[in-house]
């Protein structure tokens, strides 16, 4: 009886989740009249704007990941090691981006960093890129911080640090060669999640007027019929790849740990 309900709940869930994916896939193949074809995909891949915007977003994602790791790993490490009393505050701050809507934050950026402000980031393209990257880092902060902090919890950073110090290591060495490798799986999980978030992000890029993948998709959606479906399939594949990679690194690390 119980099991029947369980299968029912799962079945309804699967139907809800797979129909849109199936529908999108089917729709994306309909560009040629009367038969299924990959024409929509060919058209998307042939569009220079597709490559340009995807390339831009990939670049931004990588920058965001690098910056996020450099910001979050030392902070999480330092707070755990030296300032545990500060942890609730830091955690509170890292959770704020889940509460304050992104559109509000970017609105604040536009007003705070306009051309006549103390930090006129929006005055130049590179400045706006930088601002966008900081914005992405803010959006990814909750995920990145939680991933790294969870990773740090599983290792005894106090002992590791003292051991490294007793061997004469400096802070850079400790962070780069001791702590980072030990939380690499957590960092990679956070990184792939960041990638998935940044690659399709729309609001920040659109309002800061940067040529990113998200606004490109939206523009295409307003003007074309079948290509958006193809884009959705591609975007889904990218998201799936990111999550798959998270699974992979987690599993890989479990294996090495068992073998060690």
């Amino acid at each position: 009886m119980n099991r029947v309900w369980s299968w029912l709940a799962l079945g309804v869930g699967l139907l809800y989740f797979f129909l849109p994916l199936l529908g999108t896939l089917e729709f994306s193949l309909r560009k040629r009249k009367g038969e299924y074809s990959l024409d929509a995909y060919t058209a998307v891949f042939a569009d220079p704007a597709f490559r340009a915007t995807l390339g831009y977003s990939v670049g931004m994602a990588l920058l965001t990941i690098v910056f996020g790791v450099l910001l979050v790993v030392p902070t999480a490490y330092w707070v755990r090691l030296k300032l545990p009393r500060l942890r609730p505050w830091v955690e509170f701050i890292t959770l704020l981006p889940l509460v304050i809507p992104a559109i509000v934050i970017v609105f604040g950026y536009i007003r705070l960093y306009n051309t006549s402000s103390f930090l006129p980031l929006t005055g130049s393209a590179s400045g706006t890129n930088l601002l966008l990257m900081f914005g992405y880092a803010t959006l990814a902060l909750p995920y990145m911080y939680r991933a790294v902090d969870t990773g740090l919890r599983t290792i005894d950073i106090g002992t590791l640090t003292e051991a490294a110090q007793s061997l004469g290591a400096g802070w850079v060495t400790i962070l780069g060669r001791i702590i980072l490798p030990n939380v690499l799986v957590a960092v990679l999980s956070g990184a792939f999640l960041t990638f998935a978030i940044v690659i399709g992000e729309f609001t920040l890029a659109a309002l800061l007027n940067r040529p990113a993948f998200g606004p490109y998709m939206q523009l295409l959606g307003a003007n074309k019929a079948y290509e958006p479906a193809a884009l959705a399939v591609i975007a889904f594949a990218i998201t799936w790849a990111c999550m798959g990679l998270i699974q992979l690194v987690t599993r890989f690390s479990n294996h090495t740990r068992v073998n060690a």
């Binding site: 999640l193 479906a229 959705a232």
Partner: peptide, 16 residues
């Protein structure tokens, strides 16, 4: 849960 935003809208337009 991460498949939100623009492509999600496309997916539902293509389905419903």
């Amino acid at each position: 849960s991460n498949f939100a935003g623009v492509p999600l809208a496309f997916a539902f337009l293509a389905t419903l």
